[in-house]
């Protein structure tokens, strides 16, 4: 109890440091960078046949969030539809060209458009987005929904 300062006042911090580093490693491994592209305020419809599809990183995805008011947001920023889709189409075309695949203007682009739309949004807003993508050459679409519990 009344030992000198060299004997006992300092706790051994090594185990707690080990544990904290293990926790840091865990959170680094489960960190989801893709979640930044998702607008989690949107309420998606519940559809039984909506299945998670793992593209194994082989396919490029373009995530578009569509609100009930018809606003399009990407990574939390509201974007102007036609200009943004045109720019992304050009990026997709250039990416395909880097892989040795030449795509003519108006040709089918390899990127999959992932649409996350609120369940209460109107079809006219969804159709506006789909049509803008189709006009730029996108053909592959994934409509997001929530899976039933």
């Amino acid at each position: 109890m009344s030992g000198s300062s060299s004997e006992g006042g300092e706790p051994d911090l090594t185990p707690i440091l080990d544990m904290v580093f293990q926790l840091i490693t865990f959170f680094m491994l489960v960190m989801n960078f893709k979640a930044a592209a998702l607008d989690l305020t949107l309420k998606l419809p519940v559809i039984g046949s909506a299945m998670p599809v793992d593209t194994q990183g082989q396919e490029e995805l373009l995530v578009l969030n569509l609100s009930t008011t018809g606003d399009l947001t990407v990574y939390g920023n509201k974007v102007e539809l036609d200009g943004y889709i045109a720019a992304e189409a050009e990026v997709s075309r250039l990416a395909a060209k880097r892989k040795g695949e030449e795509i003519e203007p108006g040709g089918e682009l390899p990127t999959t458009i992932v649409i996350r739309s609120d369940e209460a949004s109107a079809f006219k807003d969804l159709y506006r987005v789909i049509k803008a993508c189709q006009d730029r050459g996108f053909r592959k679409f994934a409509l997001k929904a929530t899976r039933p519990e």
Binding site: M28, A35, L40, M51, A142, L143, K144, T146
Partner: peptide
């Protein structure tokens, strides 16, 4: 890492060729 942790929402998708 704790504060910025966002679990992946349980979402599915319907793949379409349009």
């Amino acid at each position: 890492f704790v504060l910025t942790f966002k679990p992946d929402p349980a979402e599915g998708q319907i793949l379409l060729r349009l």
